[in-house]
Write a protein that binds this DNA or RNA. Structure first.
Lengths: 293, 293
DNA sequence: ACACGTTACGGCAACCGTAAGGATT
DNA sequence: AATCCTTACGGTTGCCGTAACGTGT
């Protein structure tokens, strides 16, 4: 079986180009470095480094293997981090991953004393619940509450939805749109399962039926592009179009008389202790955002 | 440093739930299994398995670490495979990855005697060239030739482009469309850098300027959805819409008088020996498709 | 009594360091 | 001569198996 230390010395040897230097970095004697490379080559059955007195360069094989070697070491680090409780696998809805989570995660990482390792998986809202149940992620951030056995749900933050139109649209420049006028817009929908439809039904009641949904595209980015091109309008999370509004590529309006808000939720395994990293992240996020009833 | 064997025994122990069984599978004595788990726990500094005489179940920590452990082992396998020359990292344009490569790759894997490990990265055509230059992929399949220093390019296969309209469109049902009528269609473009624009300029000459490109969406799937919804028409690789045409959700036509074909290319590092896996894959693909001048 | 896991201990292989030996500049 | 890597060899570590020992069913 493979020896991770040897892989590590191989990688640093390629990076430094020198056996002596590698030894110094890793705290090994120089002959040991030589020995380890030899042994690695034997277990792999191929030559990895061109032997010459002047320069130590990887062979063709060595170069081919190098990215995999790096990936292996990284994977090993993640494993150790996870074991030490300093790793979170975060699962987010596509929208949250794209537009919301990054800055919060950065703040959390800076806020923690020990270094944190993390990864993010983003997919559709319903699948996020599956991932959490299967243990593939430690904590989930979704656009609607998806209660499952063995998980607890916390409300995280409220995010307004706005009506988005092309800047050349007659309504561009207005702050509000009446429900009546909303019914006349040709609306382009986004990703399925993001809960926007349910939300509209709740806010508009029976009138939601009269909205002219002309098409569903599969991602918010595709919707934004379509609206920007004048193919229609849409109802989108405000956080997703801040840049475009600022730069004048899109115009946004609120709906007169109603507040359209999506509540983001966090979900975690139920039996998790408070001091576990996912719990700390959840607490940090909810406090940070000061969610008010 | 971590010992990969121990990680392996940990994973199989969780899978089997028995020390004895694990020993049998891995060819170890039962006390050795016990010892390895203990040592792993010591190096990680946490308990992984609930000690009890009846059932061996992972602790909370153990469950949290498990996916990372599996990832680590998989990463190690990939490393070994790469070293043995039985791994290819294939980079494809998004379209090729989505619609073309899978069946070919399957045939190649079946055709090889030794088991092959592989992975696919898909991104835009220009980026594929970068990946190959950086050694992050071993072979590239792109929608146009992108010659770089140190790489060789082979034509792979020709793929027709067709005009795609909604099945409710007046032209649906026709086999051909005149260039004149093509000028009247509101065309939706797809991913940037896929070479379709260049191809149209070559085929139509100055007339290409008169095409009504109303919008570029960022992926072929988005374009398909938009066309299907009647938002416009498009010019797309035929292979991307076979299913939709068959099921009647889209209609396709050829352009009268001209053949619109994209040539897919393969790119590999220049100095690669013929018996290397990427070379074998390239040869298999080009022979399979019988590319004629 | 039996099945399962742990503890104890000895042999053996593997790893690392020191010292000496080429080869190239 | 100096630098860099390899070879040779001995000491130590650490891994594995056998045997003996708890413990719950």
């Amino acid at each position: 079986m493979l020896n991770l230390s040897f892989v590590k010395t191989f990688v640093t040897l390629v990076e430094t180009g020198s056996y002596v230097e590698t030894g110094k970095i890793l705290g090994l004697s120089q002959p040991t470095v030589s020995q380890q490379i030899r042994k690695l080559e034997i277990t792999l059955g191929t030559s990895l480094i061109h032997r010459s007195n002047s320069a130590s360069t990887p062979t063709q094989h060595g170069r081919a293997v190098l990215p995999h070697a790096r990936a292996l070491l990284k994977s090993s680090e993640k494993f150790v981090m996870a074991a030490e409780g300093n790793h979170v696998s975060l699962g987010c809805s596509n929208n949250i991953a794209t537009y919301y989570i990054s800055s919060n995660l950065k703040k959390f990482v800076d806020h923690e004393v020990d270094p944190i390792s993390w990864d993010i998986r983003s997919t559709t809202n319903p699948e996020i619940g599956d991932l959490l149940e299967n243990g593939e992620i430690d904590i989930a951030a979704t656009e609607w509450a998806d209660p499952r056995p063995g998980t607890i749900i916390k409300p995280w933050r409220r995010e307004p939805l706005v009506v988005v139109v092309s800047p050349t649209h007659s309504l561009a420049g207005e702050k509000f749109i009446s429900i009546k006028k909303l019914m006349n817009l040709e609306l382009i929908g986004g990703e399925h399962g993001s809960g926007t439809g349910t939300l509209l039904n709740k806010a508009l009641g029976a009138k939601a039926r009269n909205l002219k949904m002309v098409k569903n595209l599969h991602s918010t980015e595709a919707v934004k592009n379509a609206v920007r091109a004048g193919l229609g309008s849409s109802i989108i999370l405000k956080g997703a179009i801040i840049d475009e509004v600022q730069s004048g590529h899109l115009a946004c309006l609120s709906i007169e008389g109603i507040t359209l808000e999506k509540t983001f939720h966090l979900a975690l395994p139920a039996e998790l202790p408070e001091e576990a990293l996912p719990s700390r992240l959840a607490n940090f996020l909810t406090q940070e955002e000061k969610y008010e009833k």
